[in-house]
Simulated assay, not measured.
Amino acid sequence: MQLSSDADPPRTPGTVRPGGRTARTRAAVRDAVLAGLVDHGYPGLTVEYVAEHSGVHKTTLYRRWGGVEGLVADALDLAGEDTWTPPDTGSLHGDLKALAHEVLDTFGDPSAAAAPAAFIAAAFQSDRAARALRAFYDERFRRCAPLVARAVERGEVPEDTDPGTLARAVSAPLFFRLFITREPLDRAVADQAAALALAAARAGACTALTSEETGPTTEEAEVN
């Protein structure tokens, strides 16, 4: 489930994005935001930097995006318009290993890791960026539904297996090593994460949690 900076036209039926000059402008702004996040981090990213590196006047940037938070959120939204699909290796174990290897390949390459790592760092410093990052991964989890459906048809996991819970089970140990303990990753670690997720799914532990089990969302807690 790569968090890529490459964005193709959206694939969701009924969703229409502007093309032509508007699309080129948005892409140029997105590239400038990514460069700024990589070079300076979220605290150092400015509208002036994006204007200089995108060729879009800062007045336009403020009018359309509102400021740095809006620029980062839209860059994440654009990243989520790619054509990524989950692997289909013929077995759930193979699919989970392929997902784990995607994380390894993305974050094991410093040049490939720079943009997604910068997005994740920005989410810790901006509520709007955090919401955009959650939306990005929510979309990724939805795209994993066919992976789980195939596994259910093959009798590999229970029918109530939740795609998002299973995808999190694969990636969570890897992201913990990457961003918390700063431990190195290799294929053995990735394969172990896939095997643990597979065992959990087979045991019926990868079901969706109810709102009563998870508690209120941050937005709900603020309202109450």
Rank of each mutant, 00 (worst) to 15 (best):
T207W: 05
A113M: 06
G55Y: 06
R11D: 12
A113F: 08
T218A: 15
R202Y: 00
E212G: 14
T106G: 06
L96D: 01
P116E: 03
F141C: 10
A193K: 03
L76D: 05
P216S: 02
L45C: 06
G36D: 07
R11Y: 03
P10C: 12
K97L: 11
P86T: 01
G14D: 07
L3T: 06
S54E: 10
E153P: 00
R182Q: 12
G108C: 06
D138Y: 10
P146S: 01
A123N: 05
F124T: 12
T83W: 12
A122D: 13
A208P: 05
R30K: 15
R128I: 07
D160V: 08
F176E: 14
A130C: 12
A188Y: 08
F141N: 09
Y137K: 11
R26V: 13
A75D: 02
A135I: 01
A221I: 07
R26K: 04
Q125E: 15
I120E: 12
V50L: 06
V157W: 11
L99A: 04
G204F: 09
F119S: 12
A193Y: 04
L198E: 12
A188K: 13
Q192F: 04
D138H: 14
A28V: 08
G90A: 00
L209H: 13
Y42T: 04
L3W: 09
L34K: 04
G67A: 02
P87Q: 00
C206D: 05
A151C: 01
A75V: 01
A122C: 13
R131T: 13
H57R: 14
P9F: 05
T59G: 11
E156V: 01
A100H: 07
E213Y: 00
P216R: 02
A129I: 10
E212D: 15
S4G: 08
R154N: 05
A75I: 05
W65Y: 15
R182L: 13
T46Y: 09
D31P: 01
